[in-house]
Design a binder for these strands. Sequence first.
RNA 1: GGCGACGUGGCCAAGUGGUAAGGCAGAGGCCUGCAAAGCCUUUAUCCGCCGGUUCGAAUCCGGCCGUCGCCUCCA
Length: 469
Amino acid sequence: MDDIRLRFYNTLTRKPEPFESLEEGHARFYTCGPTVYNFSHIGNLRTFLFEDILRRTLKLFGWRVTQVMNLTDIDDKTIRSANEAGISLREFTDTFIQAFFEDLDTLRIERAEHYPRATDYIAEMAHLVKTLEEGGHTYRSGDSIYYRISTFPAYGKLSRIRLDKTKAGARVDSDEYEKEDARDFVLWKAAKEDEPSWDTEIGSGRPGWHLECSAMAMSLLGESFDIHTGGVDNIFPHHENEIAQSEAASGKPFARFWLHAEHLNVESEKMAKSKGNFFTLRELIERGYDPIVIRYLLMSVPYRQKLNFTFDGLHAAEQALERIANTLRRLEHTPEVENQGALCQADVEAFRRQLREGLADDLNTAKALAALHTVLHKVNTALDGGGISPKVRSALLEAFTEADNVLGIFPKQEISETNDDDEIQSLVNQRTEARKNKDFARSDAIRDELTARGILVEDTPHGPVWRKG
RNA sequence: GGCGACGUGGCCAAGUGGUAAGGCAGAGGCCUGCAAAGCCUUUAUCCGCCGGUUCGAAUCCGGCCGUCGCCUCCA
């Protein structure tokens, strides 16, 4: 299985490329994180989930991973919202940073190694501007500092945008500051009275958005690293500007791979507050949806495809997961057989291979999930037929653990040993007794009572199995 | 106008030259005292349309139609 090579579609080259890390065995990547002025919506989370699959896949393929995800805790929106709430910026963003981490946990998204806050890296940002100034890439207008795009010939290499062909006047620049060229962007905003500002080596003010990511990425990962990710909307101008800043300052290539997650639509429409189809994770959970169902749905479509988030889709995901859980439960409650069994080692190996091939193919989660469903079907058939031998069964469980380390969708071990377990077991036993005596009226009555308590009983060839429904 | 993505059965979706994975939903059946779970059978001679290349295309090329995204701070 060592022959399977990880490949990613690189926005920079617009081609799939085999992944190699700059540092032997160590993959370093930077992911644009949330602007913490609100709760994360499912579109945000889709991108964060894609990054979760990325880091888990890198680990599956043997890399040590260092992931950095920034927290943008200073921008126009955070400042305005904090002012409206009448609290400090720090206090305001703390709340949403905490909420953000809660949402990650809810969706079983693994923690990155670093979550730098923009406001903790002001000195680094100022220093980066200083370097750019010394290199002649900037100019000042008022007390603000701008990046002069004409000094960076490679500008546009990521987005392949040609600024001279861009539709003129498509959008009026609302910035109050004076720029020499409409294409230039602000690195450093002059201090204003009602805004937070910092005194730095380049003067007093606050950082521009693009600057934050360049400074934090280079501080924590170095001037060159392996992968940079984000949503497709970041390609231009954000990532283009990051490249311009970073490479002009360091003289070295910034990130080698650029991976971008497509957006998510809701019921075929762009998610927007004005359309009433805007969902935060919290809202969906309040409506009674299991976070794992949401996770499954979000990963059922590969990250570079638009995903149409629908309630029908949520139901389909729910059913698919139910099927997975049922098979795992069957496997757990069915005794092993002495003979060869009806599932062979080769079936397990085929599953492991297909899972890896799917993930290696630019994180094709749809393919990976299909591989899982295929092996699950084989398991069910075997369980109905010749059974599964101890040897194959243990290989299978190992393969499942490996798969779930990447997918993260298996039901968690139910450790909820409630106080009435004995009572329920007693009822189940009484029902079994009644069935033995063909007293089906009584056995059905007991089953109804259990159902009312939220307990589902299933009669298997190996006796009754019950669970909380 | 510039750059780009996409169009596969009722729905989601895999598939990038060799003859349509998988899931959900529907129908019939097996198993079951009845259920539940599971299994079996069944639903695309066809992959937006037209033309071309090829022994052979959903997959390559050209045109058309349609949907969508970005074009200065929205994942």
